[in-house]
Amino acid sequence: MRVVVDYTKCTGLGICESLAPAFFEVNDEGDLVLLKEEVGDAERQELEEAVAGCPTEALRLVD
């Protein structure tokens, strides 16, 4: 499983960063940086919360 970011929808609010800091970071310019793409089983719930918490629906998980 991996996480995918639609950068055309992302506004850099940083909710995903607060929920899954090992995966997401908002840089000094306000742009989202995907730190790692592959999601392990142990990290799945954390990523599902980040995807659900994204107000612009810019995140999704794919198999």
Rank of each mutant, 00 (worst) to 15 (best):
A58D: 09
E57F: 00
G40C: 04
D28G: 13
C54A: 05
C16Y: 12
L13N: 13
E49I: 01
L59E: 04
G14E: 11
A58G: 10
L61T: 00
V51Q: 00
V51A: 01
A20E: 05
E46Y: 06
L13T: 13
F23D: 05
A58L: 05
F24K: 12
D6R: 01
D6I: 01
E57W: 00
F24I: 15
L34N: 05
F23Y: 12
L35I: 09
G12Q: 08
R44P: 01
V33M: 12
M1T: 04
Y7T: 13
L13R: 09
N27E: 14
D63V: 05
L59W: 02
A58K: 04
L19Q: 07
E29A: 09
V62F: 03
C10S: 09
K36Y: 06
Y7D: 15
F24S: 15
L61M: 00
C16G: 14
K9G: 11
E46S: 05
C54V: 03
V5A: 07
L47H: 01
P55R: 09
L61Q: 01
K36N: 07
E43Y: 00
D63I: 05
R2D: 14
L47G: 01
D41N: 02
D41V: 03
C16P: 14
N27M: 13
E17N: 09
M1E: 04
V3K: 01
G53D: 05
L19V: 09
L59A: 06
E37R: 10
G40M: 04
K36E: 07
E25M: 15
F24Q: 11
A22Q: 03
Y7F: 09
A50T: 01
T8A: 06
A20H: 08
E46V: 04
V33Q: 14
T8Y: 08
A22K: 07
Q45Y: 06
D31S: 15
K9W: 05
Y7P: 11
E43S: 00
V62K: 07
N27I: 13
L13W: 12
V39R: 02
V33L: 12
D31K: 15
C16H: 12
V26W: 14
D28M: 11
C10G: 11
R2I: 15
V62I: 10
K9L: 07
V33T: 12
T8M: 07
L32A: 14
D63A: 09
E49N: 02
V5P: 10
E38K: 06
